[in-house]
Amino acid sequence: MMFYTVNGAPAYCYTAGKPFDPAKPTVVFIHGVLCDHSVWALQSRHLANHGWNVLAVDLPGHARSQGEAPASVEQAADFIVALLDAVGAPRAALAGHSWGSLIALEAAARLGERATHLIMVGSAYPMKVSPALLDSALNTPEKALKMVTVFSCSTLAPPSGAGFWVFGAGMALGRRVLRSNAQVNLLHRGFTACDSYARGEQAMAAVQCPVLFVLGEKDQMTPPKAAQTLANAARSAGRQVQVVTVPVGHNQMTEAPDATLAALRGFLAQA
């Protein structure tokens, strides 16, 4: 298992068992609230076996990574920048899902030319969280987790191919990540970070690389129209923008794994 010391704490990255190769391009995968690296399982494993260094992180204080769990998008973005420095990656593509998409955006803004591609999956800006859900996340996290998992699924027949049940896997992963940090309620902290992020347009103006949006047509958490503000900001900044819509909900990587991978591969193939 690959750990890097970032800001003095061990940070776990899934690399498909491969060591970092400075000769290869690098892609960083950033998960959303109450998730870990494994939400990118198929996409990260594929790219790691097709010419890329993959760094699919567990954010600090989540799952295998130690350190203080980020309380804001900006703090998490600082971690991503520090991770790349610790790894020794001069440049990297950044891919984020949901909360992770905002972290990728903010990190890309900070990295400037070091960011080669920005991929925002299931994104929205502003990423407001209802007061009721925030309250539930704080006081009844199991109930909030179920609510979020229900809203994230769009089908009773996800195309797992190998008997995985996406709803159950979402619940189990959320519970596991919640248990992984005894000091911090990661669900509430993550949602608060989403809700309070206000630098989206400013950050997009500073991004210097092409931007891909992968949006779920049936996404109830981050509906496609909620990404338009950022897409417009990217276009206004003169960035190349691609929008790919997949016919699923907020679990783009597990409900539409092939379509999501195809979108990523096509976009990353662009220099």
Partner: peptide
């Protein structure tokens, strides 16, 4: 497999 996992509240089967 998905159906039994769903009925049992599991991640898969």
């Amino acid at each position: 497999e998905q159906r039994v996992a769903a009925l049992e509240g599991g991640v898969g089967a």
